[in-house]
Each structure stands twice: as structure tokens, then as C-alpha cells.
Amino acid sequence: MALERSDVEKVAHLARLQIEENDIPEYTRNLTSILDLVNQMQEVDTGDIEPLAHPLDATQRLRHDEVTESNQREHFQQNAPATEAGLFLVPKVIE
């Protein structure tokens, strides 16, 4: 199954990845060969086999509803590229 350049561009946009123009053919080739590999799965009839999401069929444990975290804003924001007045800054969002 050969992917088109436009498929790669579409997926790259969904994933918000800037891909260099020169790299698109390589990515297209790579993805095509990965999908060929992956498509070996289609040869198996998996009928109504229950999908396995987690290796152990465990169920969700619930946390007691209590406030355990205190304010660590300054500590966490040391890693932030741009902040002001305690807010993370991003280019203007237009709604």
C-alpha cells in the first residue's frame, strides 16, 4: 500500500509536525514500508477476539477524593519558555 505525499502532509498536520519539504519523499517511503510491515496483520482472521488493551486484565483503582497537592507554580514554571503574571504565554489565540 503506497502512501501519497498528501497523506503524509495530512498526518503531519494532524500531529502538528513541521516537516521539511526535502524530507517528505523519505517519510513517504518510510511510512509506506512500515505500513506494508504492519499490514501483515490483515492476513490473520481475528474474528471476534476481544481486543487486549492492557496485558493484565485489571480494573481501575479509585483514589480517595482529597486535596493532596499544594501550589508549586514557581517551581513548575522554571521550565516554561514564556510566562507572565503566573500565566503561560502563547501566540494570540483567535476564536
Binding site: L17, V38, P91
Partner: peptide, 27 residues
């Protein structure tokens, strides 16, 4: 703009194999 922030930060920050796997997974 916002899209540029996302696309360039991620495009520059991730190497090729990571990008490949993100693309495959997204697909």
C-alpha cells in the same frame, strides 16, 4: 501564530525516528 508554535517546536524538537513513529501512530 499558534500553529507555527506547535509545528516548528515539535518539528525542531523531535528527531526523525520519533517523528516517523508519531506519523505512523497518528495515521
Amino acid at each position: 501564530n499558534l500553529e507555527d508554535l506547535y509545528k516548528r517546536s515539535r518539528g525542531e524538537g523531535f528527531g526523525k525516528e520519533v517523528q516517523r513513529r508519531i506519523l505512523v501512530g497518528t495515521y
